[in-house]
């Protein structure tokens, strides 16, 4: 009982802090952090748990965003349904793509994924231009109907919805870490043969993890779509392929709070830096190189042991030794 309470405290405390931030920090900042942390959790799971490095996350983000956008632009008005459609299109897309990708060696996997992002970008910008309106994008902010309880069509309602989604996704991944599935993922990362030995099919484990994570990325895309009421091919731009990887590593790969801490730091820095110099990419890249050379533990990876010593932080971390 006590354990369960602590478990939920572990989930809710950081998000409660962020929720409190709602009244202190600018609304767009909070929304951006929330969505970005969802986006990053997927990448963090792939990189930290399954050992997949994906520079193709924008492809899945766009799959979700366009699913939502098509629905809201051409068919319906309800943003909740729109998000569900986005989620479904992300799941279908990654399930299909995963059939091929998951078999690949990690180096090929990374290359193919980045290629996929560029292809999706091209698809949305040129090939499907008649329905995506190319670079102009799809605008549907006015088309969205109000939803009961939380009005997703309005930012001050949407922020709470995003908050709930982020907490939910985060709890899901925290939960997965403790399950057999989580253990299998970790085992595929360290040693593929070990998993087969345990009696779990390597392909299935990897495929499930792949679909799960990329559907999460698609969910983030849907959230962006509904929040801005606008989707353009820019979303799949390869120039932004680094972002989720940077944030994952910035926060601390494989750590639970990493994505959240990373998202706060990244979005905060982006807002600050882009206010001073227009050229934001340069700093993202530099930051990535510096973190990698500095030992790749990231902010949370560095902070956690320190906090633990200071505050006698709850129970000891679950053993994630390889």
């Amino acid at each position: 009982m006590n354990g369960r309470l602590r478990w939920w405290a572990g989930v809710l405390v950081p998000f409660a802090l962020l929720a409190a931030g709602r009244w202190v920090l600018p609304l767009p900042f909070v929304v951006e952090v929330l969505i970005f942390s969802v986006y990053t959790m997927a990448c963090n799971f792939l990189l930290g748990r399954v050992g997949f490095i994906s520079f193709g996350q924008p492809a899945y983000l766009a799959a979700g965003a366009y699913g939502t956008a098509f629905y809201l632009y051409y068919f319906g008005r309800d943003p909740l349904v729109g998000i569900l459609v986005g989620l479904a299109s992300g799941a279908v897309f990654s399930a299909l793509v995963g059939l091929v990708f998951v078999r690949l060696r990690s180096d090929y996997f990374a290359l193919v994924n980045l290629a996929l992002a560029v292809i999706v970008y091209h698809l949305m910008q040129k090939v499907l231009a008649p329905i995506t309106k190319g670079d102009n994008g799809l605008w549907f902010l006015d088309r969205m109907s109000s939803t009961p309880l939380l009005d997703l069509a309005r930012p001050d309602g949407f922020v709470w919805f995003a908050w709930l989604v982020a907490v939910g996704v985060w709890a899901l991944y925290k939960y997965l870490d403790d399950t057999v599935f989580g253990a299998c993922c970790l085992a595929t990362k360290t040693n593929e043969d070990k998993v087969k030995f345990l009696g779990y099919h390597d392909f299935k484990v990897r495929w499930t993890a792949f679909v799960l994570a990329n559907t999460t990325a698609a969910l983030a895309g849907s959230l962006y779509g509904v929040y801005f009421g606008f989707v353009s091919p820019e979303m799949a731009s390869a120039a932004r392929a680094a972002d989720p990887v940077v944030v994952t590593i910035l926060g601390g790969t494989g750590t639970l709070y990493g994505p959240l801490v990373g998202a706060v730091a990244f979005v905060g820095m982006k807002d600050l830096v882009s206010g001073v110099v227009g050229n934001w990419e340069f700093f993202v890249g530099l930051l990535l190189v510096v973190i990698m050379l500095a030992g790749e533990r990231g902010i949370w990876g560095t902070l956690e042991p320190w906090l633990r010593r200071r505050l006698v932080w709850r129970r000891p971390a679950p053993a994630l030794q390889e």
Partner: peptide
């Protein structure tokens, strides 16, 4: 993966510098 991430950082930073 480590070298790949790092080299991607170099690429992104370099493209930023070119801009």
């Amino acid at each position: 993966t480590f070298t790949m991430i790092t080299s991607f950082g170099i690429l992104v930073a370099g493209v930023g510098a070119i801009k």
